[in-house]
């Protein structure tokens, strides 16, 4: 690294709506505090930068033990039975609820957040192996994704950085 500025790199490996936000929120806070930010998208995390997928990220109630009925206004912490989570429409329903809550809190969408991060100087890269596996190309990605890089390239460009895997 040419300068000694603090640098945080996020590895985004998940494409579920709830797992898309941590890197975006922390990355934005880091940029606001003058910290360099690199985002590396791999496996399902590539949904976050895939033009066709970024506006359609979802949160499935199945297998999510923390998601309780209080999200729907039922008081207390009553669980959602797993079989119920599998009913058609449950995933879009949970997704709509989360998106609605985020909107009410003034939280930007994933696409907007990525634009903000890119405009604020964050560097974004897609993982070469995942790109090959999913049959994607650079033009499938949103603006701001600078290149498709290998794991080795990522190691080179994050020398001295703090790395957070999500």
């Amino acid at each position: 690294m040419a300068d000694n500025n603090r640098h945080i790199a996020f590895i985004c490996s998940k494409g579920n709506l709830d797992m898309a936000y941590p890197a975006l929120v922390m990355g934005w806070a880091a940029l606001g505090n003058g910290i360099d930010v690199t985002l590396f998208f791999t496996f399902w995390g590539m949904d976050m930068i895939n033009k066709a997928r970024v506006d359609h990220l979802e949160i499935p109630p199945i297998g999510n033990a923390s998601m309780k009925m209080n999200m729907m206004g039922v008081p207390g912490y009553i669980g959602i039975p797993q079989w119920m989570g599998g009913l058609p429409g449950m995933t879009p329903f949970a997704t709509a609820l989360m998106n609605d809550k985020m909107k009410k809190l003034g939280v930007p969408t994933v696409r907007e957040y990525l634009q903000m991060l890119s405009d604020a100087g964050a560097k974004m890269y897609a993982c070469k192996m995942s790109v090959d596996m999913f049959g994607l190309k650079q033009e499938d990605f949103i603006e701001g994704v600078q290149a498709i890089v290998t794991a080795g390239d990522f190691m080179d460009m994050t020398e001295g950085a703090q790395i957070i895997f999500i």
Binding site: N5, A29, L31, G32, N33, G34, I35
Partner: peptide, 8 residues
Amino acid sequence: FPKGPAKK
């Protein structure tokens, strides 16, 4: 406000 506008 380069390098950390929030605090600056």
